[in-house]
Simulated scan of single mutants.
Amino acid sequence: MERIAIIGCGGSGKSTIAKRLGRALNLPITHLDAVYYDENWQPLPQDQFAARQEKLVAAERWLIEGNHASTLPIRLAAADTVIFLDLPAMTCLWGIVQRRLRYRGGQHHQDGVFDRITWSFVRYIIGYRKQMRPKVTALTQQHAPHARLLTFTSRQQANKFVTEVTTGA
């Protein structure tokens, strides 16, 4: 695992898994939200965002976490491992509540997360498996047939995998 793309719904634990795996494998970690948004939570133009990702995936080793389906093919085509956190909506909603309790709102510059809970974000999470999962699955099949695909449907599965990687078990 030298080039890992971690994808999944908001609140699924992408950043947490990325930090743990990045440490275990000594991989540089990129949180896409930190690339996409500036300090005022304004997004980059799409062409600049895509260009930055093209540069990131040209490196020999990397771990990139984030959804951003519009540029997902860039990461998928270069990844040797794709980790899809396909967790239930209630788990992801609990994840954003935990993040709120931990960070108390606002943007976190270290991982680019903006802890802002809106009704549109809640609706996105609730509808993710029905609306986004088919798109993510299709993009993965199309752009990453060469990659090892690991799909986790619970935090326990994802944590067990990271523990195994970390301990070499």
Rank of each mutant, 00 (worst) to 15 (best):
E2S: 14
E2L: 13
R3P: 14
I4Y: 05
I4L: 04
C9F: 02
G10D: 02
S15F: 05
T16G: 06
I17V: 15
R23I: 11
A24I: 09
L25F: 11
L25P: 10
L25I: 10
N26K: 13
L27Y: 08
P28Y: 13
P28Q: 08
L32N: 03
L32D: 06
A34I: 07
A34Y: 01
V35C: 05
Y37M: 14
D38M: 01
D38T: 01
N40T: 07
Q42N: 11
L44K: 04
P45A: 07
D47I: 07
F49V: 05
A50C: 03
A50H: 12
Q53F: 04
L56I: 15
L56R: 13
A58L: 07
A58V: 07
A59M: 11
E60S: 12
R61T: 11
W62Q: 09
I64R: 02
E65K: 03
H68N: 09
H68W: 08
S70G: 13
S70H: 14
R75D: 04
L76Q: 01
A78G: 12
T81Y: 00
T81R: 03
V82S: 08
I83E: 01
I83L: 06
L85Q: 04
D86G: 03
D86C: 12
P88A: 02
P88E: 12
G95I: 06
G95V: 00
I96R: 04
V97K: 12
V97T: 14
L101R: 13
R102Q: 14
Y103E: 12
R104K: 14
G105Y: 10
G105V: 11
Q107L: 15
H108P: 08
Q110N: 11
Q110G: 13
I117S: 08
W119D: 04
F121L: 15
R123C: 03
R123M: 12
G127Q: 10
Y128H: 09
P134T: 07
K135T: 13
V136E: 00
A138Q: 14
L139S: 04
L139R: 01
Q141H: 13
Q142T: 12
Q142G: 09
P145S: 05
H146M: 07
H146S: 02
H146D: 03
H146G: 02
A147P: 00
A147L: 04
L150Y: 01
R155L: 10
Q156E: 15
Q156R: 13
A158P: 03
N159H: 13
K160N: 14
F161T: 00
E164P: 00
E164I: 00
V165H: 10
V165A: 09
T166L: 10
